Simulated assay, not measured.
Amino acid sequence: MMRDAATFEPAESRVTKPEFWSALPARWTSDVEETLVCCQVRQETHDVKSFFFRSPEGRAFVFEPGQFITLELDIEGETINRCYTISSSPTRPHTISITVKRVPGGKVSNWLHDNLRAGARVRVLGPAGEFTCARHPARKYLFLSAGSGITPLMSMSRAHHELSEDRDIVFVHSARTPDDIIFSRELDLIAANQGNFRTSFVCERIGNRTNWPGITGFLTLPLLKLIAPDFMEREIFTCGPAPYMKAVRDLLDEAGFDRKQYHEESFSFETLIESEPDVAAEVLEAEGKAGANGHNGTADGAQTFAVSFSRSNRTIECASSQHVLDAARQSGVRLPASCTQGMCGTCKVKLVSGQVDMKHNGGIRQREIDQGMVLLCCSKPLSDLVVDK
């Protein structure tokens, strides 16, 4: 008589059902649980990887497609914050992913590609951001992306697909070569599953593909009219390098497109900090020289307060209508900063004394605020300040 083989399976070798399959998980928040575990690293293209994270406590991720998280990384003895758009869909709440392109000379992207492995723990802030189709419902969308700017639009596309929301979406992605197209196979799958989802890839050159059937060149207004003749009627979301987004704005302005229906990622984080670090340094230096030449940034009628930096023994003046970071730069004080919009947490410091009016966008935890931490980029003085910097 045959018996079920499972009868003879040793108890210690049995695979148990994960807890998150049998219970509704609590919502993840970085205020409660600041560290996530990397559970998978996926090679997308020759220089792009996706990193997947989960909550050690099994909490679920709740966010809007298109939002971002901020990684707090310790690299060579330095704490560095970087914002990365979430590439996964909120319909898969047990994991969250970012997709990172290796930037030549980029300190963070290269560190992630070379060092971050499954099992590693990373401190994370967020999610945050307003670049999301969830806040701009429309019958028809046009997604325009270039390079790694595809990630927020991929999150939006995945969400529509997995919710069986067959919205009229035209997704136009620009890449250097066909081999540089991120998520190409998955986008083809979504297009095959949803009758109203269409993709079009525009490549600068064919690279190693001798049989590339797609478009070669750059996105232009005549080309956009061929791909999406009704683009003037669509809600447009754009993300990519700053020159690409400017080119898109220019061609849409040429067409007379209503900017009320246009949305773009509000900062190009990696472009400024990683691929153009010298440019960023020059901008800061120029701002510092402007301050040294006597421009104090005060507005007419605004009260002026003293801001003292205890470690560097520097004191500057800052108007009540001015952000402390702006005043510091104008006075030649060099401070770490990246997004300058209260998102990334790079300019986070301890406020030793004084009060500020801070309006941040997710770059600081409530418990840190309770401990006296502030973000200088989005803080205006309400009194004289002493900063631990």
Rank of each mutant, 00 (worst) to 15 (best):
M2Q: 14
A5V: 12
P10K: 11
S13H: 03
V15Q: 08
S22M: 10
P25M: 07
A26M: 11
W28M: 04
W28I: 08
E34F: 00
V41T: 15
V41G: 08
Q43D: 12
Q43C: 05
Q43R: 15
T45I: 02
K49P: 03
F51M: 11
S55Y: 02
A60K: 13
F63K: 08
P65K: 12
Q67M: 07
E76K: 14
C83Y: 05
S89T: 13
P90I: 11
P90M: 09
P93L: 07
V103M: 15
V103Y: 03
G105K: 12
K107C: 09
S109D: 13
H113W: 02
A118Q: 15
G119W: 08
L125C: 03
T132K: 04
R139Y: 01
F143D: 01
G147Y: 01
T151E: 11
T151M: 05
L153G: 04
L153P: 10
S157Q: 07
S157E: 01
H161I: 01
H161Y: 12
E165H: 10
D166S: 08
D168W: 08
V172E: 02
H173C: 09
S174W: 01
R176Q: 06
L187W: 04
L189P: 00
Q194K: 06
T199R: 14
T199E: 02
E204C: 02
N211Y: 12
P213T: 09
I215V: 13
P229F: 07
R234N: 09
A242T: 04
Y244R: 02
K246L: 11
K246T: 13
L251S: 07
E254D: 15
E254M: 14
A255Q: 11
A255R: 10
F257L: 10
D258T: 03
K260L: 04
Y262H: 07
E264M: 10
E265A: 14
S268Q: 13
F269W: 10
I273F: 11
E274A: 12
E276G: 06
E282L: 14
E282S: 13
E285W: 03
D300V: 06
D300R: 14
G301I: 11
F305T: 00
S321P: 05
A328W: 05
P336M: 08
S338V: 03
C339P: 04
G342M: 04
G345R: 03
K348W: 10
K350R: 11
G354A: 11
K359L: 00
N361F: 05
I364M: 03
Q366Y: 00
I369W: 00
Q371H: 02
L375K: 04
P381V: 06
L382K: 15
V386K: 11
